[in-house]
Design a protein around this nucleic acid. Structure first.
Lengths: 232, 232
DNA sequence: ACCTGAACACCGTTCAAGT
DNA sequence: ACCTGAACACCGTTCAAGT
């Protein structure tokens, strides 16, 4: 829980530790082995130190994984100027970039949390807010709309991507969907009228398209919503 | 990983184990101690057995927690006939019931996963689908719209509720928001133009209203969306 | 200031043995 | 069929000691 500050002349040693170095190595191990496979002993060995050394730069495993997830989130900003486009389509591009980044590192999906406190999560909400402001919505709605979009992006991405972790090793995503579809078919249509007639859609659907379809619903609602309501 | 089947005359012993019994006890311990506090040894002691006995009824801790979360999700169906009302407002009532159930058991929020395989998660999606069908949308959109709503409900609830676990013991939610707001104030307005002018909203916002505001956006988009688009 | 590595206090899970 | 509880193979984290 300490950053390397200033430009301390730590001497010749090539492997001088730093939080960035540790988090980077953690991302690699997480990609290879998943959250359970990441171990302080293993990480320490990869960095040529003892496990205790890591605790100087990172306060515990939760923080380490959160920082690793935030680094992954940062990949979503890699390519985009995001200044040219019309605001709503820029929001769509940004959202999909986040989905794709998390899709490449499924362990990270469930660790991007709101409200943001880490660098790239802050950056994401700020960019969403700036784009929302550009839509011309009244200022008092900017916060609610921006956080709704932000929650959708990270929350729904996590819903779609995180389950893959559990099943990845054993079965492919398609097999998992096919299995689930079959289980739906075996349900009693009297209890589950919708699911039993919808199995084919489950088999055919693509996660990314699903994410985009919901996103479009939300963004369409953006321009429509006028007054809040209360549930009956 | 075995249910008590039939009406086996297990004899007089009062504490005869079953999956239901184990999951119920797990929910209590999870409420008290959180996910990390739940231990097979502790759970076994609460049920007057050894840890090994539990593995006859539940295959591992992941399954146990998933079943516990699904039981919590079931609380959302406690009160509602949901037949009278107009479809969209019935959807809103159902969504808020899910949020409230998860809000009472924060550890559960991140364990409701999609696509549903457990009893109450299946029931939830089925009910959403049935209500969506009643809106008069064309049938080919029912699946995409229903899953979007379902993903929003569980995904955004998890985003809002799950962070509370980490900070709960040490600080209250209001304190956490205030702290976060203060950190936003200290950011450079040149880098974070939106966040630095939005801190007051963060301080004042209520999680549940936030959830409902985004839900309304989505439900408004429901009636609007006509044709899917592709990101630029 | 930063690193070392042994030691502490746990875990989830398995499995031979019982009834 | 179901339960027991000791044992295995780990963990995250701490901390005296070093440089």
């Amino acid at each position: 829980m300490q950053r390397t500050r200033g430009r301390a002349p730590t001497g010749g040693r090539a492997g001088a530790l730093s939080q960035e170095l540790i988090v980077g190595a953690a991302v690699s191990l997480l990609d290879e082995l998943g959250e359970r496979g990441l171990t302080f002993r293993l990480l320490a060995k990869a960095l040529n130190t003892g496990p205790g050394a890591l605790y100087w730069h990172v306060s515990n495993k939760d923080e380490l994984v959160a920082l690793a997830a935030d680094q992954v989130l940062g990949q979503a900003f890699a390519a985009h100027p995001s200044l040219e486009e019309e605001a709503v389509s820029a929001l769509r591009v940004l959202a999909v970039a986040v989905f794709d980044a998390l899709d490449r590192h499924p362990w990270a999906a469930s660790h991007v949390s709101a409200p943001p406190t880490l660098a790239n999560a802050l950056r994401l909400l700020d960019r969403i807010g700036t784009l929302v402001a550009r839509t011309g919505l009244p200022a008092e709605r900017h916060f609610a709309v921006s956080t709704a979009i932000s929650y959708y992006i990270t929350g729904v991405s996590a819903q779609i991507i995180a389950p893959r972790i559990t099943h990845d090793a054993t079965v492919s995503r398609d097999d998992f969907l096919a299995q689930t579809a079959q289980r739906w078919e075996e349900l009693d249509p009297a209890d589950y009228p919708f699911l039993t007639r919808t199995t084919q859609h489950l088999r055919d659907h693509a996660d990314r398209d699903q994410f985009i379809a919901g996103l479009d619903m939300l963004l369409d609602g953006l321009s429509t919503t006028a007054h809040p309501r209360t549930p009956a």
